[in-house]
Design a protein around this nucleic acid. Structure first.
Ligand SMILES: NC(=O)c1ccc[n+]([C@@H]2O[C@H](COP(=O)([O-])OP(=O)(O)OC[C@H]3O[C@@H](n4cnc5c(N)ncnc54)[C@H](O)[C@@H]3O)[C@@H](O)[C@H]2O)c1
Ligand SMILES: NC(=O)c1ccc[n+]([C@@H]2O[C@H](COP(=O)([O-])OP(=O)(O)OC[C@H]3O[C@@H](n4cnc5c(N)ncnc54)[C@H](O)[C@@H]3O)[C@@H](O)[C@H]2O)c1
Lengths: 217, 217
DNA sequence: ATATATTAAAGAAATAATTCTTTATTAAAA
DNA sequence: TTTTAATAAAGAATTATTTCTTTAATATAT
């Protein structure tokens, strides 16, 4: 999306592949629950409507080998995918900005299955401080600095208003945060080693509206 | 993301470009407010930290021509970008599922600047029906069918639980909806001419966690 | 006026990602 | 046991996207 991060020596897994992996994982978990032991790439491709060789290439990043005429072992694959994505670990995260979107994310239980656990939320607004949503407490923003000294939290979810996002992001970096999930549409300017994942509504809207326009000729 | 839609004769604008365009628009609006009349691609590139020739190529899709040694006219560009993206039109949308995420999106005023206007929300839960958030009423789900006959709404925002998403999506298509902004992580199986824009938390989590892992070697 | 530096535009090259092809493996059928 | 069909894996070819290079235009300075 923004600037490419090439801070790793060995060839990184391509982003399109990475984005597709959770889809495979969820599908595989579903069929595994139904008792399916083995599944082939063509079958996965048919269900998920994508190219079977793409499936093979994507799944290869996990290191799991399939057997000809049998396919992949669903248990092995699920496990390897979870491991590879980090979904089976508990990756603790702070949430900053307990507003409309922030509280929706706090209430969102599925984060657990994505390996991300919001352990505390922070806000500057008196009305928000002290509340708790989905078992997560909203703390005074200033407490972020004290808490981050004790805890080693590497991930932050940023849901403040746009105009304070840059300042808050800089605070987060100073608190030892290494990756920011940015829901604001502020173009964060941070050191290169900080991972920023922008989830920009506007980009989605742009693609949707334009494609809709295209389809109407 | 999922399957490529190639339903348009002329070469479509590449998706990566489309995703970047709103970023240019917001930046340009900001500098225009400061009274900047002209701006060059290298300047934009420096601010947004991207390649200047990329900027030139991206902006070329609007049809706006820049002048050597001067750059682009900010007014012209903003206008052309809004026009191209459809952000200056009122694209009416239905929202289905007025839960945590749904109500956050209803309260989200910035949709207006993205050209999307939620005109009504629908839910099956008695407790939700009748409420209104951000000036938008939550109606009984069944009213969707009546209303869609009268109104010609082409866009739907899907924020129901995952397990009903497919059924609801099919209803929406039957109601004449042409584009679905899908926030569930259900793999919607719909006719090819329907535009589905998946905003999958899991994909973002995957990229974020994996890159974090990569950076820690 | 003339020269100079800046820059958009167009095209070429490089890189990344996807799709196609071939090969080798293996379970099941004959 | 031998044959057959299915399929993973590896690599080639294609396609898409980004980056680099050249060219032409033009405002500013000389
Ligand atoms: N609401 C949505 O559905 C939605 C969707 C996509 C993106 N976004 C983006 O998410 C961000 C938040 O949106 P929202 O609708 O939740 O807004 P909001 O105003 O409801 O929430 C923002 C919260 O941040 C708090 N805050 C303000 N300054 C702060 C600071 N310096 N430190 C910590 N907290 C601070 C506010 O008190 C408030 O509780 C915006 O950038 C918006 O563009 C929102
Ligand atoms: N909460 C989040 O932050 C978040 C973030 C990303 C994605 N999501 C996804 O968005 C979806 C909704 O999440 P949520 O947290 O808002 O859940 P939620 O349970 O709070 O909201 C779902 C709403 O849909 C309504 N609903 C149920 N069945 C319906 C039907 N057949 N027709 C119409 N409405 C129906 C429910 O009454 C409820 O109000 C889920 O798929 C979730 O994975 C949520």
């Amino acid at each position: 999306m923004s600037l490419k991060r090439k801070n790793n020596k060995s060839t990184q897994v391509p982003e399109p592949t990475l984005r597709r992996l959770p889809g495979y994982l969820f599908f595989l978990e579903k069929v595994r629950e139904k008792g399916v032991i083995n599944i082939s790439a063509p079958t996965i491709g048919k269900e998920l409507k994508c190219d079977p060789t793409q499936v093979v290439k994507d799944l290869a990043v996990t290191g799991i080998k399939g057997k000809p005429r049998v396919g992949y072992n669903t248990y092995e694959l699920c496990h390897a995918l979870e491991e590879f994505l980090g979904f089976n670990r508990v990756n603790e995260a702070f949430l900053i900005g307990a507003g409309n979107l922030g509280t929706a994310l706090m209430a969102y239980q599925e984060h657990q299955t994505l390996g991300i656990k919001i352990i505390a939320a922070f806000d500057v607004n008196e009305d928000k401080i002290g509340k708790h949503v989905g078992g997560i407490h909203v703390l005074e923003y200033n407490k972020l600095f004290h808490l981050s000294n004790r805890l080693d939290v590497k991930i932050a979810i940023l849901t403040t208003p746009n105009n304070v996002a840059q300042d808050v992001a800089e605070d987060l970096v100073n608190c030892g945060v290494k990756a920011i999930w940015n829901f604001t549409h502020c173009n964060l300017d941070l050191p290169d080693n900080i991972i920023v994942e922008d989830i920009s509504m506007s980009s989605f809207a742009a693609v949707l509206l334009r494609r809709l326009n295209d389809s109407e000729e």
